[in-house]
């Protein structure tokens, strides 16, 4: 198991390097630059700025400078906002974004798994139909529309929760954004869990477990849930990364102080430093998530372990 984990970590290194390179060059291929504005800067100022950020060097040299800094843990400065850097941005916005996404993730995963199991055990009965309806709503309605509907209904009409904004430490302000984020995630997980659970409940080994007189509760808990989780777990990694990126939009809609606001502005301004730094941060998170998923996978499915 340890060797397997180590091999997976090592194999993530070239993947990370390739991803960084691709991000770097794609961003540079996009037209425009950080200093293109409505009003052109004086040529001398522009030249100085470009020299300061090494933008006057050949692209390949810039690339190696960037990699070198990255290896030293420096994600780079903002090229648009004076004195601002990626590390600053992460320090300010990331804890919030992470809290939002993780809260949604934990709630959605718990609800999704439970709902999927209940639906599978009650296949084609009313709990199953209720779930199908909830899933449809969650998957069909895009998050910006869902956000607006929830704001209107629960924020304005009923006034149960604030429609937007943020007061430090107030969980009431998180209810609507977390709901918007969590719903589609819970919907996908419950569908996966339902399908996989129904399949597992029809397997020969569940029949064997029943023939042993273990009782339906133990049959489900010990024999069915663990193998049924396999396809769900492989979705959880990408799922969390959807939530992290999805939260950027939700933060904008609800006016929450996460990374979202900065990232969107930076992308529009071609702020190479911020965009690249944030992208790389997300890339590392996704790689780490996939790694965790693989390890959990190995625990769930013993056949994977020794390969």
């Amino acid at each position: 198991m340890l060797g397997y984990a180590l091999r997976r970590v090592l194999s993530a290194i070239p993947i990370a390097l390739i991803a960084v390179s691709v991000c770097f060059f794609i961003l540079r291929l996009a037209p425009g630059g950080p200093f293109d504005g409505e009003r052109a800067l004086p040529p001398l100022v522009l030249a100085n700025l470009r020299a300061h950020y090494s933008l006057d060097q050949p692209l390949v040299v810039q690339y190696f400078i960037y990699i070198w800094r990255l290896l030293h843990g420096d994600l780079g400065p903002s090229m648009v906002i004076e004195g601002f850097s990626v590390s600053r941005l992460i320090a300010i916005g990331f804890p919030f974004t992470l809290t939002l996404a993780l809260t949604a993730f934990v709630i959605a995963t718990a609800i999704g798994l439970l709902a999927g199991m209940v639906a599978a055990v009650n296949q084609n009965k009313w709990p199953d139909y209720v779930l199908v309806l909830a899933v449809m709503i969650g998957v069909i309605i895009p998050n910006f529309l869902m956000a607006a509907l929830l704001q209107l209904w629960f924020g304005v009409h009923l006034g149960w929760f604030p429609a937007g904004g943020w007061v430090t430490g107030s969980w009431m302000h998180l209810v609507l954004p977390v709901t918007v984020l969590a719903w589609p995630h819970a919907a996908r997980i419950s569908r996966l869990m339902r399908g996989s659970m129904i399949e597992i409940l029809g397997t020969n080994y569940v029949r064997t477990a029943r023939s042993k007189g273990l009782g339906e509760r133990l049959v489900l808990a010990r024999h069915a849930i663990k193998p049924a989780l396999i396809p769900v777990v492989s979705y959880l990694g990408p799922g969390l990364s959807y939530l992290l990126t999805g939260s950027l939009a939700v933060e904008q809609i609800f006016g929450l102080p996460g990374i979202g606001k900065y990232f969107v502005t930076a992308a529009l301004n071609r702020d190479y430093g911020i965009v690249l730094g944030t992208t790389i941060l997300y890339m590392f998170i996704i790689l780490a998530l996939n790694l965790i998923v693989d390890l959990v996978y190995a625990w769930l499915d013993p056949k994977v372990r020794y390969r």
């Binding site: 080994y205 569940v206 029949r207 064997t208 024999h223 013993p302």
Partner: peptide
């Protein structure tokens, strides 16, 4: 059961 390959729980 007939098929010992699938009648034991793989996990």
């Amino acid at each position: 059961f007939q098929d010992p390959m699938t009648s034991l729980n793989p996990s």
